[in-house]
Amino acid sequence: MKPSVEQMLEAMQLALREKVSPVVSDQWAASALRSVDVILNHLQARTPVEGPMLYEDNRDLAAVLEGAGGLSLAGEMASNGDVLAKALAGFAADVAESAQGYPAVAVLSALNVRGRYLLDDLLRVCHARRGQPGVERVHTALRGYLDRHIERERPFFFPTYVGRPV
């Protein structure tokens, strides 16, 4: 049996809190310690679940973006629309490929960023075409993903980053 990453982070944090912080009087050093403490909290929340969370989030993203394929990307944004349509198809294929074997967290993270940029583009399309047929349905689906995504990330940042910032 070996200690988990969270246990090791917790031990580091305990050492800093119990042995270092009480003897630090310099305000710059105390501020650095507070910042490190917050980062250690964040890492303890993020490390054990980041991979599965990204995997789930990417599958969710792919489904939502695929559903947005019904939104016509022709018209006044034709050239950008073509690029966006190809990017959406490419993203779906890459998410499917990432499910083969064991994907690295860095790969899942890069894919997630790419997918959320695409979703950001689609949000802009939805707002530019508000009132047109099919747009409201796609927009509702995108909003639904945003709610689920922020819920998945919440334990990484809340209440971890509340409190004195520096």
């Binding site: 650095a32 910042s35 917050v38 980062i39 922020i150 940042f157 980053y161 509340v162 520096v166």
Partner: peptide
């Protein structure tokens, strides 16, 4: 600097949560 990291990343994500 860790302060810049916390403000530019963690604090930003906290505000994103608040906007949510």
């Amino acid at each position: 600097s860790v302060a810049r990291l916390n403000l530019g990343y963690g604090r930003v994500k906290l505000f994103e949560q608040l906007l949510g």
